[in-house]
Simulated scan of single mutants.
Amino acid sequence: MEKKNIEKRLSEYNGIIKENDELYRGVAKAFGLPDCAFWILYALRESGKTLTQSEICYAMYQPKQTVNSSLKKLEREGCIVLTEMRDRRSKEVHLTEKGVKLAEMTVDHVISAERIALAGLTDEEHDTFMKLFRRYTGLLKDSIGDLLEKQEEK
């Protein structure tokens, strides 16, 4: 592929990703939630079960410190309860009644909007989109892995 085409496609891709990110940032702001708190509530509601702090970090691709700060704030606000597990290093995150109501008024609506958007795709379009997005992400992961290896060699 020509360099000009690659540059154009990369720009288009980055624009779409940033627009998508802005949609979520905008809806979190409209609901009066910091991004991280929004994604914590989202992860808990999407999973439909209790998650540990580590599982939330993994689901959000965020550092433990960032997630922990937001969890502490949600706990102070009475939206979640953190309970120690057997190993005492891990904690489970439980929504309180207040947290459930907050999720119902916020992230549940976003999840519903996402379902409506996905329903607008045919099965074939969805499968193609996911297949190509997974493929691109895998190729990018390999390319960045190579970049990091070269960086470590310096």
Results as ranks from 00 to 15, higher is better:
E2D: 11
E2G: 06
K4S: 05
I6P: 01
K8G: 00
K8M: 04
L10V: 13
E12L: 08
E12N: 04
G15M: 07
E19L: 13
N20L: 12
N20T: 09
N20P: 02
R25L: 11
R25M: 09
R25V: 07
A30C: 01
G32T: 08
L33S: 03
D35Y: 05
D35K: 01
A37M: 11
I40H: 06
L41T: 06
A43E: 06
L44S: 01
L44I: 15
E46M: 14
S47N: 15
T50K: 13
T52L: 03
S54K: 12
C57L: 03
N68V: 02
N68E: 08
S69A: 13
L71S: 02
L74W: 00
C79Q: 05
V81Y: 07
L82Q: 14
L82I: 00
M85A: 05
D87M: 03
R88W: 03
R89G: 02
S90L: 09
H94F: 12
E97Q: 12
K98D: 05
V100W: 03
K101Y: 01
M105D: 15
T106D: 05
D108P: 03
H109F: 08
I111K: 10
A113N: 06
D123C: 04
E124T: 15
H126N: 11
F129Y: 15
M130D: 12
F133Y: 10
R134E: 15
R135G: 02
K141N: 02
I144G: 00
D146S: 09
D146H: 14
L147T: 07
E152D: 12
